[in-house]
Design a protein around this nucleic acid. Structure first.
Length: 286
DNA sequence: CACTGAGCCTGCTAGC
DNA sequence: TGCTAGCAGGCTCAGT
């Protein structure tokens, strides 16, 4: 069976947000250490340091998979964990032993720390003005757990373009927050083949897909995220959603939990994809 | 517009 | 047993 790695998607980032919001609110940044320069995506490291030191964290929010730390002076610190990024809070330096993958460390005036560990170095931290952050946010699509993401909105998204459904669900400009795990899980629950053209999905399946996306994500948030390998909350805890996955991370050929058919593994849009060919038939409209 | 492939990275594993 | 090539994957950019 193929080894799988968990990348933080919306539910994992939301779990981290909840943990960090109570831990970081009101803390003032005293220092920033950077051990892998490309971790800081914007601006250059010196400016990043100058502009963030002395700033106080007002709240920790989330937009799609972005962790958004709002600073009291109005700037915004964004953190994208990508594949293996991990944030770990420590009360003091003596309470923390740096991992070999420590890429950046924020020190607060009270001596507490926020470590950014990232094995693969894909994660990015940026300091943005509120205007720049608004621009970033506007380039992202629907928040799937917001009340504005209705079945009607999803229907319009699917009807207004003609794309394979799985790459469409993963396109952050359209719907923001789904990644490979929850896209596969949502399509399985909705009984939709990952290659189905978005504009041909029947009306009743659109409603099922909407419910599947909302349910899969909100259930994963309730269970504090999925930990297959790397993901941890801001305090190092594992999630509990992994035991609830129906297709992702299960071996090629292992039985579908609904009908027993061996599951199929393929590549769709350059990403590993698991589905059940019986429960998710490819309907080709004539 | 839709889609593909390269590049960024390194741990893990299949296969020799 | 030890080594290495290739895979995995979120996202961006360039090319078709």
């Amino acid at each position: 069976m193929r080894h799988t790695v968990t990348m933080p998607e919306l539910p994992e980032v939301e779990t981290i947000r909840t943990t960090l919001d109570s831990l970081l609110r009101g803390r003032t940044i005293a220092g920033v250490d950077v051990y892998w320069e490309r971790t800081i995506g914007h601006p250059d490291i010196e400016s990043f340091r100058c502009k963030s030191i002395g700033q106080t964290i007002a709240s920790v929010d989330r937009r799609a998979k972005l962790l958004v730390m709002r600073l009291e002076a109005g700037d915004v610190l964004t953190i994208h964990l990508r594949m293996t990024g991990e944030l770990r809070f420590h009360v003091s330096a003596t309470d923390s032993s740096p991992t070999p993958y420590l890429r950046s460390r924020f020190t607060f005036v009270d001596g507490s720390l926020l470590d950014f560990n990232d094995v693969r170095k894909f994660g990015r931290i940026e300091l943005l003005s509120s205007e720049d952050f608004r621009f970033v946010s506007e380039s992202l699509g629907e928040e799937p757990l917001s009340t504005s993401f209705s079945p009607d909105v999803l229907r319009e998204i699917l009807r207004s373009r003609s794309r394979q459904i799985k790459p469409l669900l993963l396109d952050q400009r359209v719907i923001a927050g789904l990644g490979n795990i929850y896209a596969d899980e949502a399509l399985f629950r909705a009984g939709i083949h990952p290659l189905t053209s978005s504009s041909t999905i029947p009306e009743e399946h659109v409603a099922r897909l909407h419910a599947a996306i909302v349910d899969v994500l909100s259930e994963a948030v309730e269970h504090r995220g999925t930990t297959l390998r790397d993901y941890r909350s801001g305090l190092g805890d594992r999630g509990e959603n992994q035991s609830r996955l129906l297709v992702y991370g299960r071996g090629d050929g292992s039985p579908c939990l609904t009908c027993g058919t061996p599951l199929t593994r393929t590549v769709v849009g350059q990403r590993g994809t698991m589905f059940c060919a019986t429960c998710q038939p490819l309907l080709i409209p004539r």
